[in-house]
């Protein structure tokens, strides 16, 4: 009997599988904090794109606790941690010649960030 059969498809599609974890993990950052993305270059799975590495932003929203894909993708456990919406100006990301009223928001895990110096 195959694992994925037609009878379970509707239920799977309608339910999905949230990466949100019901674990009590303290956030390392608060809304309004100035943060700097770590300049790391893992050769393994990561959700930290190169274009924000080393860049400074502001924590806009705390989405709650999620499984950490960087470890989960390699069978190394959930490493439950907070995910935040972090706001970057285009000037910070791409240079001073960009308009002032342009922003990039990206969801960052605790492990990707440190307090901005």
């Amino acid at each position: 009997m195959p694992t994925l059969t037609p009878d379970i498809v509707p239920g799977l599609i309608a339910t999905g599988a949230s990466a949100r974890l019901d674990e009590d993990v303290a956030p390392k950052f608060s809304i309004g904090d100035a943060v700097e993305m770590k300049n790391i270059n893992p050769v393994t799975h990561t959700r930290l794109p190169r274009y924000v590495r080393g860049k400074k932003g502001i924590v806009e929203r705390d989405h709650g606790v999620f499984a950490f894909p960087d470890t989960g993708a390699h069978g190394l456990g959930h490493k439950a941690q907070h995910v935040y919406s972090v706001k970057f100006s285009f000037r910070e990301l791409w240079g001073e010649d960009h308009a002032e009223n342009m922003y990039l928001y990206i969801d960052m895990f605790d492990d990707y960030m440190r307090p901005a110096p």
């Binding site: 989405h63 308009a99 009223n101 960052m108 895990f109």
Partner: peptide, 15 residues
């Protein structure tokens, strides 16, 4: 218009 603020959302994580 130039005055319009642009917000780009990179949905790289689980949201």
């Amino acid at each position: 218009p130039e005055e319009t603020e642009i917000r780009v959302w990179d949905s790289n994580a689980e949201l």
